[in-house]
Design a protein around this nucleic acid. Sequence first.
DNA 1: TGACGCTATATCAGTTTGATATATATGCGT
DNA 2: ACGCATATATATCAAACTGATATAGCGTCA
Lengths: 178, 178
Amino acid sequence: MNVRTLCLGILSLQEASGYEIKKDVEDGVFCHFIDASFGSIYPALTQLASEGYVTVREQEQTGKPDKKVYAITEAGRQALAKAISVVPAKDKYRSEFLFQMLLQDYLSPEMMLVAIQKQLNDLNEDLARIAECSQQAPAGHGSHFVADYGNAMLTAAVKCLEYKKAELLQQMAARAAE
Amino acid sequence: MNVRTLCLGILSLQEASGYEIKKDVEDGVFCHFIDASFGSIYPALTQLASEGYVTVREQEQTGKPDKKVYAITEAGRQALAKAISVVPAKDKYRSEFLFQMLLQDYLSPEMMLVAIQKQLNDLNEDLARIAECSQQAPAGHGSHFVADYGNAMLTAAVKCLEYKKAELLQQMAARAAE
DNA sequence: TGACGCTATATCAGTTTGATATATATGCGT
DNA sequence: ACGCATATATATCAAACTGATATAGCGTCA
């Protein structure tokens, strides 16, 4: 699935500017399972507009720079329906953190602790973002589904990490006492 | 973290050919949190060799084509230690499946069921691969860590999905009974 | 007034993917 | 004896994407 389809999907829920789409995938409903950069979003929107899948409207704002608001068209909805009616590709999870943990022989215990704490912060931030979205969103069935799934995974990760952290602290204390 | 560092990390555990590195990230200890393609692995190995971080050795094989076995050097180990002694980047999780579930209004219940079943299969395959690795690997502390973390996340995802699947089946039955 | 931060769009070098090509060897059917 | 499928193994490349950088409007606080 490419960024064009991603943008169509977001625009099918609400009209938005490129900047707002970027915020959606950073802090919004999509934050824990989608990512995209400006460098792919803006060209995608331009292309979608040229293909007639979205419309553009320049909107003046008070207190902020103007923005280009994109809205999905009927042709866009059809293209979206077609694009997501295929068996999805396998999930991709890429974790530099786990890579470090696997190679922990090259790390000092202090470095490990810093990395674990950073990971815990990241996980808890994502959980907080999901909680915030669930609260405020108008929410169809879909957003409940992804929120529940995200909560389940992230909560399990936090629990596992808290245990690993305690284990490490115990080991460090034991080594210091020697 | 780029593919060069990834290759160094794998080679720090065992010498390997490009093809074997690809298998490690597909079926091995790294399968559930790292991915890389031939198109990035082979150039990375060539570059690492030219920089003196790895050595190459052409190895003849009976019953199989020859292979180039790469081994990490002392300079490579130092470069690796430096590369992973930074606070890791945030995990990236990209799920087309969750994207589909969020936009489920565009999907038939049958399509949803197919997607959920496919996701369950993928998750269970990953769990099986982790179990297999834990069993056979010589395993330092690192591989336990990542196996436990992977198990926790994937098991939680499976549990959540089984529930969602049952819910969907119930709805479909209710609608069929109308 | 000027430093900082947020909003907003745009561009691009460098990295990575996903597909394709090429080659060796084994096994299986016919 | 031959084609065919599959596994091992390396290589290449167009297309896609990232991460960084540039530019600019507007508000706020010192």
